[in-house]
Design a protein around this nucleic acid. Structure first.
Lengths: 245, 245
DNA sequence: AGGTCAACGTAACATGGCGTAACAAAAGCG
DNA sequence: CGCTTTTGTTACGCCATGTTACGTTGACCT
């Protein structure tokens, strides 16, 4: 992944250079910025791993900027502010900030919190990343997520129906998490229509059964797509994801 | 994804129930726990989305627990503590906590920070979710913790029901510790619906009996899964664990 | 020792979830 | 329009799990 690249946004130039210097000494690449426009230009022109965003920026407002950025980007943001009242902090979290740090701060503590947020965010693919094609490998099977088909460990090509393929996608997105039939149904209904509350028969059971019959070595004793009695179904398999182009 | 499931770890029972209630009122499933063992049993027996971990837990230490858990699991952890000095906070971040919150805290602010951490963690892709496979050996038996089956010392394959397998997992996670029926039931109930205080029949007895009939050489005189009259059950056996790759 | 009683083991039964075969309805497709 | 493929429904039976009932065990008392 390389050296983490931080964007330090503050309207006080002294503060800005102090902070950038500090981070550079600690092994980061720190770039200064002082306005929303500068932030955006950095975001579009290069990789930014985390933004340290001052809340009071002359006539601009860090919280609002954060809100706007969040609507478009997934980049981690830590708000920094002299305003430390609870309702102000909450406003920050409200708009999607990953952390909120009061000024004056202990630089070492700031470092620690930057690391904490990045540690969590590093494993998170950015929105842009997520758009790429992902190929899933599980238990010898290969599913490219585009075509409605899977390759068996022995190399056979098994074709799935659209619904089966969609189900597989849902399962792969939620490994090791038991999903209720309702959750599965909701995930499959691309309609986006808010939850129709109740009442669907055994359609999911059948769907699961059919997928099992195609991808389980022994459908009677499923190893990957397992039943959680009284709950729903879980996909248990080690999955690895290729993010290749 | 379902309702977020939090684990509230505090040794003060009043604090614990206050917090769990609060989170439940805010739409979360909150499970109480008070020791590292309980945490582990929850982690092995069900899905936990975030752990709120008090730093001072009687004779245990939340920071150390956090460090240990981090080495094995990726579950988000927020440390909660009355110790708010910078070096104490940093120690928390140092061991991989996602956030560190000082007591007393504003509940709404706590909520906001829980949301912030989860929002980031929720997107954690399957990449990070390499299932840790641990193989348990006890008394000649082998249990891989993944399939619902055990290998007898003689090499026979004995298949367990899901419930039996889950029970075995709980027992293996708590060797030599007498577990009450309620504790076992709680550990088995992935339902997360917080403790319905009362009233469950002899289901656990039956479950224990059935497991015994499968893994005890002489079920009438159990050597591993013993009864603690008036208390519950204990698993006494030398267990060794393979953390295979 | 013998007696008492609660705790426990377990056989027998009850229940309800789930797999699935068979059928029916939709959706493609020429 | 028929024919095929996919998807949903119904019905039936199995079996995991829980409950009940009764016999046994063991701790405690006198």
């Amino acid at each position: 992944m390389g050296i983490p690249r931080l964007l330090v946004v503050d309207d006080d130039s002294e503060m800005r250079s102090m902070m950038t210097q500090f981070f550079q000494q600690n092994g980061y690449i720190a770039l200064p910025a002082s306005s929303e426009n500068e932030i955006r230009s950095h975001l579009t022109s290069g990789r930014i791993d985390l933004i340290l965003l001052d809340v009071m920026l002359g006539d601009e407002n860090g919280v609002e900027i954060c809100a706007r950025l969040r609507r478009e980007q997934d980049v981690p943001i830590i708000l920094v502010s002299a305003l430390s009242a609870d309702h102000q902090r909450m406003a920050g979290y409200e708009v999607g900030a990953d952390d909120y740090i009061a000024k004056p701060f202990n630089p070492q503590l700031l470092l620690a919190r930057v690391r904490a947020v990045m540690q969590r965010a590093r494993r998170t693919p950015s929105l842009a990343y997520r758009r790429r094609t992902r190929t899933f490998h599980f238990d010898g099977w290969v599913y490219d997520g585009k075509r409605d088909e899977v390759h068996s460990p022995e190399g056979y090509l098994v074709s799935l129906s659209q619904r089966e393929s969609a189900l597989l996608k849902v399962l792969l997105a939620n490994p090791h998490i038991p999903l209720t039939r309702d959750e599965i149904a909701a995930a499959l209904d691309v309609t986006g229509e808010t939850d129709k509350p109740e009442a669907q028969g055994r359609a999911i059971d059948m769907l699961v059964g059919r997928l099992r019959s195609k991808i389980e070595a022994n459908p009677k004793d499923p190893q990957m797509l397992r039943t959680e009695r009284g709950v729903g179904y879980v996909f248990t398999a080690d999955i690895s994801v290729d993010e290749d182009a």
